[in-house]
């Protein structure tokens, strides 16, 4: 029991207690600046009718799909490239470098680089004859742009997690495959990917949860706009809680977000049978 005692302490004090409190507040009318008033299910009833809420959910899902899809493929690709091609620490350091820069700064740098009038990226596009793209201002581009920025920051991080997983695959497995005359491509699908499963599941669950909570990039760049194109759920919750002082309603939405994440993660874990490892 001593093994989990410290973790449990931190868990109860800094996670369980605040969550229970948040859950309670979701049944209240609470402006942050005056005492909470119990109002039953009123917040949840409002949520059902709140078109902003549904829009925010939709936008968030769009973001998660793009972000996770692109990021996972790239990360596994990079990890494989690093694993098969080079043991160079410099390459690894470079790949991780974007993660060293804080979210907010990453967003600011790209905001500047992707500016439609003075951004360097649109200058490059101009050189190859492409008209400037209003990355943040065009409602069709805004979410993919935000997702792309976060892929840039996180792909090295994710690749490193996958890479750590690759390192735990024993060499003899590959040697056996080579003896059988398996091609590199086949080896990847038949051996590497299945053996990578425990790590991959973890990476997917963790990045998915993080992805649903996208906030910083939106707060720095589009602030929910244009119109409501990037008003992702967490940004909307934040707006409700801290600029509109509707903390009770924000708590209710946060709790729903929590429930959605729990279901999605559970499904992922079930579907991918993360519990057992193929090696154990």
């Amino acid at each position: 029991m001593i093994f989990i005692a410290p973790a449990t302490l931190g868990f109860v004090v800094f996670y369980i207690w605040p969550t229970l409190r948040g859950a309670y507040l979701s049944f209240t009318e609470y402006s942050l600046l005056s005492a909470p008033k119990f109002n039953g299910l009123a917040n949840y009833e409002r949520m059902v009718q709140d078109s902003f809420f549904w829009n925010a959910l939709g936008v968030t899902v769009e973001y998660v799909v793009i972000n996770i899809g692109v990021q996972t493929v790239l990360a596994v690709g990079i990890a494989m490239l690093m694993y098969r091609l080079t043991k160079s620490i410099t390459v690894r350091a470079v790949i991780l470098a974007p993660y060293l820069v804080a979210n907010v700064v990453v967003a600011l740098v790209w905001y500047w680089m992707l500016d439609v009038q003075v951004g360097i990226v649109n200058t490059f596009l101009g050189w190859v004859g492409i008209d400037p793209v209003a990355f943040f201002g065009d409602s069709h581009w805004a979410i993919p742009t935000v997702a792309g920025i976060n892929v840039w920051r996180h792909m090295g991080y994710t690749a490193l997690l996958v890479f750590a997983g690759l390192q735990t695959i024993p060499k003899y497995v590959y040697e056996a495959a080579e003896v059988d005359g398996s091609t590199e491509w086949k080896t990847f699908w038949r051996i590497t990917l299945p053996l990578l499963r425990p790590v991959l599941v973890m990476v997917l669950v963790v990045t998915m949860i993080g992805s649903f909570q996208i906030f910083d990039t939106v707060a720095v760049t589009t602030q929910g706009g244009p119109i409501n194109a990037t008003r992702v759920i967490y940004y909307y919750i934040y707006e409700r809680a801290f600029t509109r002082f509707d903390f009770g309603y924000a708590s209710a939405m946060a709790l729903v977000l929590f429930a959605i994440l729990a279901v999605v993660s559970l499904l992922q874990l079930r579907l991918l049978r993360a519990k057992e490892s193929d090696l154990a």
């Binding site: 973790a7 996670y15 605040p18 969550t19 948040g22 919750i237 929590f258 993660s265």
Partner: peptide, 17 residues
């Protein structure tokens, strides 16, 4: 349960903490 803590929105934790 611990895993579920991963999903706790930071908006819950910041103020009480």
């Amino acid at each position: 349960l611990f895993l579920a803590a991963l999903m706790v929105p930071p908006i819950f934790t910041t103020l009480p903490n």
